[in-house]
Design a protein around this nucleic acid. Structure first.
Lengths: 111, 111
DNA sequence: ACAACATACATTGACAGGCGATGTATGTTG
DNA sequence: CAACATACATCGCCTGTCAATGTATGTTGT
């Protein structure tokens, strides 16, 4: 992977919630969408993805249900809740703040 | 603190190296400068700061020496090395990339 | 027929970074 | 003389990431 995961750490939830803002989806597909949107530069590791789902569901940000696939592997779909939408908005604001903050803190005067 | 530390995680080293790009400095003062530059919104916890120094020194990014204070508490000064400067440049590039990547990944189509 | 691969979900155990708590020592200020 | 600021340092816990591993189904190439 080309991006250090510590730089993405803390954004996993935001990234997943952003995907679910566009409608219900299941894990594998969500990760595929992330890969595509990143131009192949980034993907969530499966362990990271599924532990994020567990975390978000416990926090009430998402809800899950099994798809009715009659063929192929079963799919667990996720739906963003109202709490999730509020959380997402809040996380977006945090990101904006953090971005400005970091940009500010890595400035320097060359000596 | 107003900023979630997971959003800053992975930037600690960059932030410290940026401070040292402006000349040698010691831990306490570096943290004060960070607080000032952030407008009081952010400070490194001491445990975080000193473990970052240890890490950076082990990696050869910084070197340390004791100040010659004849009064007051002793100060351990840090100097950025050539390796540190290269690392810093590289971290800046990583940040630029990560910023664009995240901005891209948190876009969504409202439904 | 059968291997290889893609789809799809899930858990375990290890690791790394951040940090609260705590400790040391010195100097200043009300 | 208590409170506070300066200054460095370590220990142990917590959390998020991830390699490894496992399960099960469907497709494609030879």
């Amino acid at each position: 992977m080309s991006i250090a995961s510590d730089l993405i750490r803390g954004h996993t939830d935001t990234i997943i919630l952003a995907r679910l803002m566009g409608g219900d989806n299941y894990g594998y597909e969500i990760n595929k969408a992330i890969q595509q949107k990143s131009g192949g530069r980034y993907e969530l590791k499966e362990a990271t993805l599924y532990s994020a789902f567990r975390r978000l569901e416990q926090e009430g940000c998402i809800e899950s249900y099994w798809g009715d696939e009659t063929t192929g592997a079963r799919r667990r779909y996720y739906r963003i809740t109202e709490i999730g939408k509020e959380t997402f908005k809040s996380l977006l604001k945090d990101w904006k703040t953090a971005k400005e903050l970091i940009d500010n803190l890595i400035e320097w005067e060359d000596k």
